[in-house]
Simulated scan of single mutants.
Amino acid sequence: MKTESTFKAFRVEEHEGTFNTAIKDMPFKPLETGDLLIKVHYSSINYKDALSASGNKGVTRQYPHTPGVDAVGTVVTSKSDLFKADEKVIVTSYDLGMNTDGGFAEYIKVPAAWAVKLPENLSMKEAMILGTAGLTAGMSVLRLTQLVKPKDGTIIVSGATGGVGALSVSILSKLGYDVAAITGKETETNYLTHMGAKSIIKRSDFEALDNKPLLKPQFAGGIDTVGGVILENIIKTTNHMGVVTSCGNVASPKLNLTVFPFILRGVTLVGIDSQNYPMHFREEVWNKLASDWKPSTLSETCNEITLNELDKNMALILKGQLKGRTVVAL
């Protein structure tokens, strides 16, 4: 057990409806109950973290609270036969950083069922460059590639400069797929091309497509990270027997569709639930991300910060201005 009496954490506190953040020295005693006490080496910034830090009660019900839905580190103490002290583990999603104090702290305590052993050939920093975004991208690629092969045609990816989008582009490109990337950031064309995109589609152009039940088929499949009109038009432009995955709703949670893409073209829409994804699939995806699927541009998608820089960067992600992945070094 640790000899220190306190550890540092990024805390969000509520005072009469106003939410404030500060780095606090926290005692070990109030750490959540759980099987594993983990010394955190890295975390990363996700959209949910920014929502939690700004007081979104749909993400975090009670404050004070420590956000951070991602963490990687070493086991200090274990009550589980699955893990032993000094093992390196990844913890993402479930309730971490939502209503359980999360990875923006030097230590966390979690159930063993939330942890995955860090795969060989993946460093702790690389694991957090991937994080929930990489796991979500990996889940999306796994489901899509089960039915759609590179020879079938181009895959379209929305929100392509975001964490899930950029990693999806990179993984698909490495697997031999031609990728078309949708973005609202025209200045990032070179970045997306470097990630592996063969073509770039302006978000405004794609949103402005005719509002018909079906559109000209152009894509073998798609990975959508934003929802709304973009997802509608991806589905409408998908080829016969194509597959589209859906993992986000930052544009809108609503879809205005007919059943025609599904019953006339046999399009499959696959939902991606990264929060409660079954553990055996998580382990499969993490092992693929550490080997055959590991993006060659992984380090180039990363900006490393400290706890002191969290506020500024979470403000950027809420505005849609954070490019790639931002890793928090503890």
Rank of each mutant, 00 (worst) to 15 (best):
A127D: 01
A133S: 07
A113Y: 05
A133P: 05
I156N: 09
K84V: 12
S93D: 08
F83M: 14
M124W: 02
I156P: 09
S93G: 01
T136M: 11
K125A: 10
L130E: 15
D152L: 01
K84S: 15
G163R: 02
S158E: 13
A160N: 11
A85R: 12
T161H: 04
I108R: 04
G102Y: 04
K79V: 06
K117V: 04
L130W: 15
L147N: 13
R143F: 11
K117R: 10
D152A: 03
T154C: 11
G163Y: 06
G131M: 09
A113P: 11
V76H: 00
G163A: 13
G138F: 11
T154G: 09
V116G: 02
K109F: 00
R143D: 04
D86H: 06
A133R: 03
L135G: 03
V89M: 08
G102F: 00
P111E: 09
W114S: 14
A137C: 06
G97L: 10
E120S: 10
E126Q: 06
I108W: 00
Y107K: 07
D81T: 15
K79R: 15
L130Y: 14
G103E: 08
L118W: 05
T145F: 01
A105F: 01
V91A: 13
K88W: 02
I156A: 10
K149E: 08
E87D: 10
L122E: 11
P150F: 04
P150E: 06
A85I: 02
S80L: 14
K88E: 09
T92V: 10
K88Y: 01
I156H: 02
A85M: 06
L122K: 08
T100N: 07
A127V: 04
T145N: 10
L118T: 04
A115D: 10
M98A: 12
K149I: 09
N121I: 03
S158W: 09
M139W: 01
Y107W: 00
L135R: 06
S123L: 05
T145C: 11
D86Q: 12
E87P: 00
L142P: 05
K109V: 03
K88Q: 12
A112V: 07
V91Y: 06
W114Q: 13
M128C: 14
T161I: 14
T100G: 08
K109P: 05
L130A: 14
A105G: 00
D101M: 13
I155T: 02
T154E: 15
A160L: 14
G138R: 05
A85W: 08
